[in-house]
Design a protein around this nucleic acid. Structure first.
Lengths: 329, 329
DNA sequence: CTGAAAGCGCTAACAG
DNA sequence: CTGTTAGCGCTTTCAG
């Protein structure tokens, strides 16, 4: 529990010199450096980050806002963020908002109060107005989900194109009656994925069927089941389903299995994200792979750049359709 | 970006008074209090946690050590920790160690350097010696996995008993040839769960078959598959499998399905943890439910207690066998 | 190459 | 009820 003063005393130098040794400045003679290092060792000294932070007006903490921890999609991103952050001397504060504005505000306060140096927002339900206002003062990056035109840099994929390719794949293997399990259209990604879905259908002169578009309030297994139940109850049952999240798709898959229909023979299923569990289902899930880990590292890098005052640009990452058992028997 | 001095000036009072208002001390007259609050508003002042932390020699951050984010088991615990921490004014720093001593040490440094006030360790592979030594100086709690007899408080379940009940269930529904997919016996929970397995067998005069005990180096889906592959290759194939983690069990399930055997008719499967995904498989997984969320809240509460200097006791929580499709057709 | 001293923003002891 | 003042532990000018 020694502090820098005691080290200085022990080494017979000033606190400034100790600080210089601590920070690896080369303007210290080898002799005094050794003296200081010995003092540090004998006193078992550990520099307090608290003091340093106050002095430097930084916390070296990155706030990561996610709607919920239960969707593995976010976990891969978080791993990317964490590793990049760590490699640059930052730590991350994970904040599960439950898409609850109140909780969100608690976390926003952390950056206002200097407990965090910046924010990576992955919450589609975030209050865009607040975020925009906050971004005028503090470094903020949007990851995966984003509000366009609000001047906050983002890293994401091309959702419209990804969705288009997924549906096109279904059409190519012979499907005409394709249902869409989407999320609420207040989210940009939901609107974009719907557009991709529509474009694929139009291009193949398949008319849009309102009954085939189901909306869910959450990207969860249970909501996927519910949506699938509605679809199975339709008089003119679709032969394929595209869900905008693997969690929904896995729920749908389970529901189809439970009704003794066969995937993909009776109904083909495509998901989105390529979470680990998409490979553990029976059959395995065809899905659109997002480079989640990479997205995380880039988001962290962008944020740290912004903290340092650099100019950062939006980034669109590649995606890839992974064809597995749920569309090819 | 105003500081407390500017607020004091604006309000025409001293910084001490502003601080008192900030901290809700009632020794301030209503009149001055209003003055201060107005000044805060006009200056858009936000008190810096950095200054407060240094002054109070605390960071109000809890370190949470987990081996990896991919196992949903930990996520539920983390949710519990986070909510309890939040309600008491703490935030959590999530640290994925990958059971890597180096990474672990980076994180340990955070508490040595006062960036964190205490640690909740959930990593079974943690270096017990380091942990023990650290615990002499800093508040530490063990959650779920623990080293006994090293004087660090823990919250966990009775693994031996839980395992015993799981295997007993298999015996009761008629199984005699029961395999165990266990994790490395360097972990206490692995030894305890093996003991429970053995006790159940002995009690029913079923002799132990070494071939039926498979060890894995990780609690992952892939390792579950691998283990099951070995089991399926046995000349005298078991009719039931008990895996010490749902992740392993889900891997095993997938492998059995892939070999066109039927669960539970050909082989019954029991898992451990009751993660969300254990209900999404086909068939659903019989498993031992751990009160993960509760365990998290308790761990956080214990740690905060310890930070405050209270004496805290070990806690053993209840578990429950949840019987589902994988053992009852 | 090294030291003295100021100060990051806050809290709390003490005095009045 | 309020103000003065001393620091929490560190970094960084500015002198020398």
């Amino acid at each position: 529990m020694a502090n820098i003063q005691q080290v200085a005393k022990q080494a017979g130098v000033s606190v400034a010199t100790v600080s210089r040794v601590l920070n690896g400045q080369n303007s210290v003679s080898t002799k005094t450096k050794t003296k200081v290092e010995e003092a540090i060792k004998t006193l078992n000294y550990e520099p307090s980050i608290l003091g340093r932070n106050l002095r430097n007006s930084e916390s070296r903490i990155l706030l990561v806002l996610i709607p919920n921890l239960s969707n593995p999609f976010y976990l891969e991103i978080i791993k990317g963020i964490e590793n990049m952050a760590l490699s640059q001397g930052y730590n991350i504060l994970l904040c599960e908002t439950d898409s609850n504005p109140e909780k969100e505000n608690i976390y926003f306060d952390l950056v206002r109060k200097k407990m965090a140096d910046g924010i990576i927002s992955m919450d589609p339900a975030v209050n865009v107005e607040t975020l925009k206002q906050l971004a005028e003062t503090y470094p903020i990056i949007q990851c995966s989900e984003y509000g366009g035109g609000i001047g906050i840099p983002y890293v994401t994929i091309n959702s419209e194109e990804a969705s288009y390719r997924a549906v096109k794949h279904l059409i190519q293997i012979g499907h005409q009656k394709i249902a869409l399990i989407n999320s609420d259209e207040k989210f940009l990604y939901a609107r974009e994925r719907k557009m991709g879905y529509q474009r694929a259908l139009q291009e193949n002169t398949i008319s849009l069927n309102k009954d085939y578009m189901i909306y869910t309030s959450e990207l969860s297994f249970e909501h996927g089941q519910q949506a699938m139940r509605k679809i199975l109850a339709l008089a003119d049952r679709p032969t394929a389903v595209f869900a905008v999240s693997d969690m929904l798709a896995i729920g749908a898959l389970k529901e189809i299995n439970a009704s003794s229909l066969h995937v993909p023979n009776d109904i083909a299923v495509v998901g989105f994200d390529k979470i680990d569990f998409s490979n553990m289902t029976n059959p395995t899930l065809t899905t659109v792979a997002q480079p989640m880990y990479k997205m995380g590292t880039i988001a962290a890098d962008m944020l740290i750049g912004k903290i340092k005052g650099e100019k950062v640009d939006n980034i669109i990452l590649e995606h890839e359709l992974v064809i597995r058992g749920s569309t090819s028997g």
